[in-house]
Design a binder for these strands. Structure first.
Lengths: 138, 138
DNA sequence: GAAGATTGAAAAGTCAATCTTA
DNA sequence: TAAGATTGACTTTTCAATCTTC
């Protein structure tokens, strides 16, 4: 009985935070975070560039969040901002070469971490978990 | 198939964030957050006061975090800082009357939200969920 | 005026460095 | 020197207000 026994809401919140921390720690080794990796993922998926508003929508977050996230990615040299020829109000976030490389690396790290984390579950257990989580958000 | 289907890590992270947002929204109606409520909970549990370092340990977070959290709670009038008679290096966070009231209110809101969230699961499903989450953190 | 982006302020968290007391 | 707390810098997120362009 050495481990902390959590119930209800905190069981979910705590488990989630533990798993997130593990992945973040591995990503930090290459200067990435889940937030940065998600942005790189959306850009790669969209064919290397997106208007910031579109990026915000696909990341399910607010526009001001993306402004600052892209600031940090730009400082890291993984993304650059260019103007949209079609609409002068709009700014495009575009992947750099370093950004493409970082995305490949980060993506591998994430998959690897995910396999390690979920490897302890049988396929049936994994299915059951997803079913239960889906039910909780109904 | 209208809902976004998530797998692996993101299923857990997303479910957790959805549940957290729901509780945070209810707590915000009375000027609380989960972080603030957790601190009030630890203080009430400990008999109304704790050194900041102890509070940090019981909240599983870093001391500088508690310094700032107590700053905000103090600004809200829910906690006040007093000096520790035993050790002049130490500062005690102590619940105010308003703090005790806020804890009671917040605690009710949290229990209520938790019942709503987990009410969709049968006792067996709830047990299964906890078992699976425990396994993921092994 | 509405849409796109940015800025400023705040909450929540981390780390590294610092200051006071033991 | 160690321990307790704070401060400053940074990440991530949100909201409200602003600025430019449509």
């Amino acid at each position: 009985m050495g481990t902390t026994q959590k119930r209800g809401l905190f069981a979910v919140l705590h488990a989630s935070s533990v798993m997130e921390s593990r992945v973040e720690a591995r990503l930090a080794d290459v200067g990435l975070s889940l937030a940065k990796l998600a942005a790189l993922h959306r850009l790669a998926e969209a064919g290397e560039s997106l208007p910031l508003g579109q990026l915000a929508e696909r990341l399910s977050c607010v526009k001001s969040n993306v402004t600052q996230l892209v600031d940090r990615l730009e400082a890291d040299g993984l993304v650059s901002r260019t103007s949209d020829p079609n609409d002068r109000r709009s700014r495009l976030a575009v992947l750099t070469d370093a950004g493409r490389k970082a995305y490949a690396t980060g993506s591998d790290i994430q998959s690897q971490a995910e396999r390690e984390l979920f490897g302890v579950l049988t396929p049936d257990e994994s299915d059951a978990l997803h079913q239960l989580l889906a039910k909780l958000q109904a």
